[in-house]
Amino acid sequence: MVPLDQYLLLSALLFGIGLAGVLTRRNGIIVLIGVELMLNAANLNFIAFWRHRADTGAADGLLFAMFAIGVAAAEVAVGLALIIALYRARRSVNLDEAKELKG
């Protein structure tokens, strides 16, 4: 069997990729994809820890991951709606276009 730290390592790498995408890409859709990757990395952590727990009586980790997926779905729906709204207003999905929210 694969030890726990390898899963964690993969999770960390996935998280890093997602973060890099969020921080560097200007296309809103790609930013959302990055966010999804980060969420999946967290889910992987949940599952991995759940599987490697000493007592395996309950399904807590699984359920956490499931709720995270649900929240992610809601978040994607709202995020994409925002992107559509942005596109309608600016004819672009470039996040740098939307900078009215400044001090």
Binding site: V22, L23, L95, A98, K99, L101, K102, G103
Partner: peptide, 12 residues
């Protein structure tokens, strides 16, 4: 307030 330039990426 100048830091709040409205660019999402800077916030991120």
């Amino acid at each position: 307030a100048g830091w709040q330039d409205g660019l999402v990426h800077n916030y991120l």
